[in-house]
Protein backbone atom coordinates (compact mmCIF):
# COMPACT_ATOMS: atom_id res chain seq x y z
CA UNK A 1 0.00 0.00 0.00
CA UNK A 2 2.98 2.29 0.57
CA UNK A 3 3.38 2.05 -3.17
CA UNK A 4 0.05 3.86 -3.56
CA UNK A 5 0.98 6.47 -0.98
CA UNK A 6 4.35 7.16 -2.55
CA UNK A 7 3.03 7.06 -6.12
CA UNK A 8 0.66 9.81 -5.07
CA UNK A 9 2.96 11.76 -2.77
CA UNK A 10 5.87 12.09 -5.23
CA UNK A 11 4.13 13.71 -8.23
CA UNK A 12 1.96 15.78 -5.90
CA UNK A 13 5.17 16.85 -4.15
CA UNK A 14 6.47 17.87 -7.56
CA UNK A 15 3.44 20.09 -7.86
CA UNK A 16 4.52 21.63 -4.56
CA UNK A 17 7.52 23.05 -6.44
CA UNK A 18 5.17 24.44 -9.07
CA UNK A 19 3.11 25.99 -6.29
CA UNK A 20 6.15 27.53 -4.60
CA UNK A 21 7.23 29.07 -7.90
CA UNK A 22 3.70 30.28 -8.69
CA UNK A 23 3.40 31.89 -5.27
CA UNK A 24 6.67 33.79 -5.59
CA UNK A 25 5.94 34.92 -9.14
CA UNK A 26 2.53 36.15 -7.92
CA UNK A 27 4.29 38.42 -5.45
CA UNK A 28 4.19 36.25 -2.32
CA UNK A 29 7.34 35.91 -0.23
CA UNK A 30 9.10 32.57 0.25
CA UNK A 31 7.87 32.62 3.86
CA UNK A 32 4.27 33.22 2.78
CA UNK A 33 4.49 30.37 0.26
CA UNK A 34 5.75 28.06 3.01
CA UNK A 35 3.09 29.24 5.49
CA UNK A 36 0.42 28.44 2.89
CA UNK A 37 1.77 24.93 2.35
CA UNK A 38 2.17 24.27 6.07
CA UNK A 39 -1.08 25.75 7.35
CA UNK A 40 -3.50 25.88 4.45
CA UNK A 41 -2.18 22.55 3.10
CA UNK A 42 -4.78 22.01 0.40
CA UNK A 43 -3.36 22.34 -3.10
CA UNK A 44 -6.37 23.66 -4.96
CA UNK A 45 -7.06 26.35 -2.36
CA UNK A 46 -3.41 27.40 -2.30
CA UNK A 47 -3.23 27.79 -6.07
CA UNK A 48 -6.48 29.78 -5.91
CA UNK A 49 -5.17 32.19 -3.27
CA UNK A 50 -1.93 32.98 -5.13
CA UNK A 51 -3.72 32.97 -8.49
CA UNK A 52 -6.38 35.47 -7.46
CA UNK A 53 -3.91 37.77 -5.67
CA UNK A 54 -1.40 37.48 -8.52
CA UNK A 55 -4.08 38.48 -11.02
CA UNK A 56 -4.77 41.60 -8.98
CA UNK A 57 -7.95 40.28 -7.34
CA UNK A 58 -9.19 41.43 -3.96
CA UNK A 59 -8.30 39.78 -0.66
CA UNK A 60 -11.97 38.89 -0.18
CA UNK A 61 -12.21 37.04 -3.48
CA UNK A 62 -8.91 35.22 -2.81
CA UNK A 63 -10.22 34.08 0.58
CA UNK A 64 -13.66 33.17 -0.79
CA UNK A 65 -12.27 31.10 -3.67
CA UNK A 66 -9.70 29.38 -1.45
CA UNK A 67 -12.34 28.60 1.16
CA UNK A 68 -14.83 27.24 -1.40
CA UNK A 69 -12.19 24.90 -2.75
CA UNK A 70 -11.56 23.78 0.84
CA UNK A 71 -15.19 22.82 1.47
CA UNK A 72 -14.69 19.38 -0.01
CA UNK A 73 -12.21 18.56 2.75
CA UNK A 74 -15.10 18.89 5.23
CA UNK A 75 -16.98 16.25 3.23
CA UNK A 76 -13.90 14.02 3.24
CA UNK A 77 -13.85 14.39 7.04
CA UNK A 78 -17.42 13.11 7.21
CA UNK A 79 -16.34 10.03 5.29
CA UNK A 80 -13.15 9.48 7.29
CA UNK A 81 -14.63 10.18 10.77
CA UNK A 82 -16.09 6.68 11.31
CA UNK A 83 -12.88 5.10 9.95
CA UNK A 84 -10.35 7.11 11.95
CA UNK A 85 -12.42 7.42 15.15
CA UNK A 86 -10.38 10.38 16.35
CA UNK A 87 -11.21 12.69 19.23
CA UNK A 88 -9.52 15.23 21.52
CA UNK A 89 -6.14 16.55 20.39
CA UNK A 90 -5.91 13.92 17.63
CA UNK A 91 -9.02 15.37 16.01
CA UNK A 92 -7.36 18.77 15.72
CA UNK A 93 -4.06 17.35 14.46
CA UNK A 94 -5.18 14.58 12.12
CA UNK A 95 -7.91 16.58 10.45
CA UNK A 96 -5.18 18.78 8.95
CA UNK A 97 -4.10 16.00 6.58
CA UNK A 98 -7.67 15.40 5.36
CA UNK A 99 -7.23 16.19 1.68
CA UNK A 100 -8.00 14.71 -1.76
CA UNK A 101 -4.96 12.44 -1.72
CA UNK A 102 -5.25 10.91 1.77
CA UNK A 103 -9.00 10.32 1.37
CA UNK A 104 -8.48 8.94 -2.14
CA UNK A 105 -5.94 6.34 -1.01
CA UNK A 106 -8.12 5.45 1.98
CA UNK A 107 -11.20 4.74 -0.16
CA UNK A 108 -9.10 2.81 -2.68
CA UNK A 109 -8.37 0.35 0.16
CA UNK A 110 -12.01 -0.04 1.19
CA UNK A 111 -12.20 -3.74 0.31
CA UNK A 112 -9.26 -4.45 2.66
CA UNK A 113 -11.05 -3.10 5.73
CA UNK A 114 -10.82 -0.17 8.08
CA UNK A 115 -7.22 -0.78 9.23
CA UNK A 116 -5.97 -0.64 5.65
CA UNK A 117 -8.01 2.50 5.01
CA UNK A 118 -6.58 4.14 8.12
CA UNK A 119 -3.02 3.19 7.18
CA UNK A 120 -3.51 4.50 3.65
CA UNK A 121 -4.91 7.76 4.99
CA UNK A 122 -2.01 8.45 7.35
CA UNK A 123 0.78 7.21 5.05
CA UNK A 124 -0.50 9.39 2.23
CA UNK A 125 -1.45 12.41 4.33
CA UNK A 126 1.91 12.53 6.08
CA UNK A 127 3.82 11.63 2.90
CA UNK A 128 2.14 14.39 0.90
CA UNK A 129 2.64 16.85 3.76
CA UNK A 130 6.40 16.20 3.86
CA UNK A 131 6.94 16.23 0.07
CA UNK A 132 4.57 19.13 -0.56
CA UNK A 133 6.24 21.39 2.00
CA UNK A 134 9.79 20.42 1.06
CA UNK A 135 9.15 21.07 -2.63
CA UNK A 136 7.22 24.28 -1.96
CA UNK A 137 10.35 25.66 -0.35
CA UNK A 138 12.55 24.50 -3.25
CA UNK A 139 10.11 25.88 -5.81
CA UNK A 140 9.81 29.20 -4.00
CA UNK A 141 13.58 29.57 -3.77
CA UNK A 142 14.18 28.60 -7.39
CA UNK A 143 11.07 30.23 -8.83
CA UNK A 144 12.73 31.15 -12.10
CA UNK A 145 14.20 27.74 -12.84
CA UNK A 146 10.95 25.75 -12.50
CA UNK A 147 9.83 24.57 -15.93
CA UNK A 148 6.32 24.14 -17.24
CA UNK A 149 4.72 21.09 -15.54
CA UNK A 150 3.20 20.07 -18.89
CA UNK A 151 6.62 19.19 -20.32
CA UNK A 152 6.96 16.46 -17.67
CA UNK A 153 3.36 15.28 -17.99
CA UNK A 154 2.80 16.33 -14.38
CA UNK A 155 -0.51 18.01 -15.25
CA UNK A 156 -1.90 14.66 -16.43
CA UNK A 157 -0.20 12.50 -13.78
CA UNK A 158 -2.11 14.14 -10.93
CA UNK A 159 -5.64 13.55 -12.33
CA UNK A 160 -4.47 10.08 -13.41
CA UNK A 161 -3.53 9.36 -9.79
CA UNK A 162 -7.03 10.27 -8.60
CA UNK A 163 -8.53 8.18 -11.41
CA UNK A 164 -6.44 5.23 -10.21
CA UNK A 165 -7.64 5.75 -6.64
CA UNK A 166 -11.36 5.81 -7.46
CA UNK A 167 -11.02 2.98 -10.00
CA UNK A 168 -11.49 0.14 -7.47
CA UNK A 169 -14.53 1.98 -6.06
CA UNK A 170 -16.28 1.97 -9.42
CA UNK A 171 -17.12 -1.69 -8.91
CA UNK A 172 -20.85 -1.18 -8.47
CA UNK A 173 -23.39 0.07 -10.97
CA UNK A 174 -24.49 2.75 -8.51
CA UNK A 175 -20.94 4.06 -8.08
CA UNK A 176 -20.29 4.09 -11.82
CA UNK A 177 -23.52 5.94 -12.59
CA UNK A 178 -22.87 8.44 -9.77
CA UNK A 179 -19.34 9.05 -11.09
CA UNK A 180 -20.61 9.65 -14.63
CA UNK A 181 -23.23 12.13 -13.40
CA UNK A 182 -20.65 13.85 -11.20
CA UNK A 183 -18.29 14.28 -14.16
CA UNK A 184 -21.06 15.65 -16.38
CA UNK A 185 -22.37 18.03 -13.71
CA UNK A 186 -18.91 19.35 -12.81
CA UNK A 187 -17.96 19.96 -16.45
CA UNK A 188 -21.30 21.61 -17.14
CA UNK A 189 -20.76 23.98 -14.21
CA UNK A 190 -17.10 24.86 -14.93
CA UNK A 191 -17.90 27.73 -17.34
CA UNK A 192 -20.90 28.90 -15.28
CA UNK A 193 -19.90 28.95 -11.62
CA UNK A 194 -16.76 30.24 -9.86
CA UNK A 195 -13.96 27.75 -9.00
CA UNK A 196 -14.86 25.45 -6.13
CA UNK A 197 -18.58 25.22 -6.87
CA UNK A 198 -18.46 22.76 -9.80
CA UNK A 199 -16.79 20.06 -7.69
CA UNK A 200 -18.69 20.47 -4.43
CA UNK A 201 -21.99 20.68 -6.32
CA UNK A 202 -21.54 16.99 -7.12
CA UNK A 203 -22.36 16.17 -3.48
CA UNK A 204 -25.94 16.51 -4.78
CA UNK A 205 -25.29 13.54 -7.05
CA UNK A 206 -24.17 11.48 -4.03
CA UNK A 207 -27.32 12.56 -2.18
CA UNK A 208 -29.62 11.60 -5.04
CA UNK A 209 -28.06 8.21 -5.67
CA UNK A 210 -27.51 7.39 -2.00
CA UNK A 211 -30.96 8.51 -0.82
CA UNK A 212 -32.72 5.18 -1.28
CA UNK A 213 -31.30 1.72 -0.79
CA UNK A 214 -30.42 0.20 -4.13
Amino acid sequence: MLRYSLSVAIPVGGYGAVFGAAAVSSGFSVLQACVLSLFLFSGASQFAVVGVMGAGGSVISAIATGALLGVRNAFYGLRMAPILQISGVRKFLDSHITIDESTGVAISQENLGKDAMRFGFYATGIGVFVFWNFFTLLGALGANSIGNPATFGLDAAVPAAFLGLIWPRLNTRQARISAIFAVLLALLLVPILPPGFPIIATVLVAMIFGWNKK
Partner: peptide, 14 residues
Protein backbone atom coordinates in the same frame (compact mmCIF):
# COMPACT_ATOMS: atom_id res chain seq x y z
CA UNK B 1 -20.57 7.93 -2.40
CA UNK B 2 -19.28 11.42 -1.55
CA UNK B 3 -15.53 10.85 -2.10
CA UNK B 4 -16.33 8.91 -5.28
CA UNK B 5 -18.31 11.78 -6.81
CA UNK B 6 -15.94 14.51 -5.55
CA UNK B 7 -12.82 12.76 -6.84
CA UNK B 8 -14.50 11.84 -10.16
CA UNK B 9 -15.43 15.49 -10.58
CA UNK B 10 -11.90 16.51 -9.59
CA UNK B 11 -10.38 14.22 -12.24
CA UNK B 12 -12.62 15.68 -14.95
CA UNK B 13 -12.01 19.29 -13.90
CA UNK B 14 -8.23 18.79 -13.67
Amino acid sequence: LIPVVLLSALVSVQ
